[in-house]
């Protein structure tokens, strides 16, 4: 059985858009927790994942038992957003005055925005809105650094590095290494470890 958590169940949401590696990210966190003896439930909406839709994973982490794969409204402790507009969407339903957020600021335009029916909000507004819905929010542009590693997809693992650096969940590097080694092909392990490391530094920079 895992050690006592800061909250039990600890409610984490990882949000993004189809193709950002949301599902892998949530499985990695889930496996890291199970590795340490916790009970984990992950609820996912990925039916629309290949078609530009919003994708969201609800992670319920507990030392005592399994929980609903759908988190009750307003109950998130932490929101990790791989896309800024998705942070707002999730916070509006699952947020509360004590929630924390980690957010990639690089937008992925929705079709509505591309065709001019909708306007993508300005970055400064998005940051302001997210801050107003959170007790504590950290922002970073992982997409650029991920592209330097060869693929924007590594942004998901960087976000996990940032989550680990908050210390809210037990996510030590050695356990990440064990878990990721089983999830990706051997050639990609080193890059994923690098991405996790870069992610951990993102938050330190902020502080």
């Amino acid at each position: 059985m895992g050690k006592k958590l800061s909250c039990d169940p600890y409610n984490l949401i990882i949000a993004g858009v189809g193709g950002q590696g949301n599902v892998l990210a949530s499985r990695v966190v889930g496996d890291m927790m199970i590795h340490q003896g916790y009970k984990v439930t992950i609820g996912e909406t990925f039916g629309a994942s290949q078609r530009g839709g919003s994708v969201m994973s609800h992670l319920r982490i507990s030392a005592r038992g399994g929980f609903s794969p759908q988190m009750p409204k307003g109950k998130a402790h932490m929101v990790v957003a791989l896309e800024p507009m998705e942070a707002i969407r999730v916070l509006a339903t699952y947020g509360n005055p004590k929630v924390k957020a980690l957010c990639n600021t690089r937008p992925i335009q929705s079709v509505g925005v591309i065709c001019g029916d909708q306007i993508y909000p300005e970055k400064k507004h998005i940051i302001q809105w997210i801050e107003s819905l959170c007790a504590n929010a950290g922002f970073f542009d992982t997409t650029k650094q991920a592209l330097d590693l060869g693929d924007s997809i590594f942004g998901n693992i960087m976000a996990l590095g940032a989550l680990a650096a908050t210390g809210d969940l037990p996510m030590p590097l050695n356990i990440f290494k064990t878990v990721i080694s089983k999830k990706v092909v051997p050639a990609k392990i080193a890059t994923n470890l690098k991405a996790f490391g870069i992610g951990m530094e993102l938050i330190k920079d902020k502080k």
Binding site: R51, G52, G53, E86, I88, A92, S110, H125
Partner: peptide, 19 residues
């Protein structure tokens, strides 16, 4: 908080239409 969230989501997070 809910009222604030509703206001923000209207302006800040238009629905992502499937495509």
């Amino acid at each position: 908080y809910k009222a604030k969230a509703l206001e923000i989501i209207a302006a800040g997070a238009p629905v992502r239409e499937l495509t």
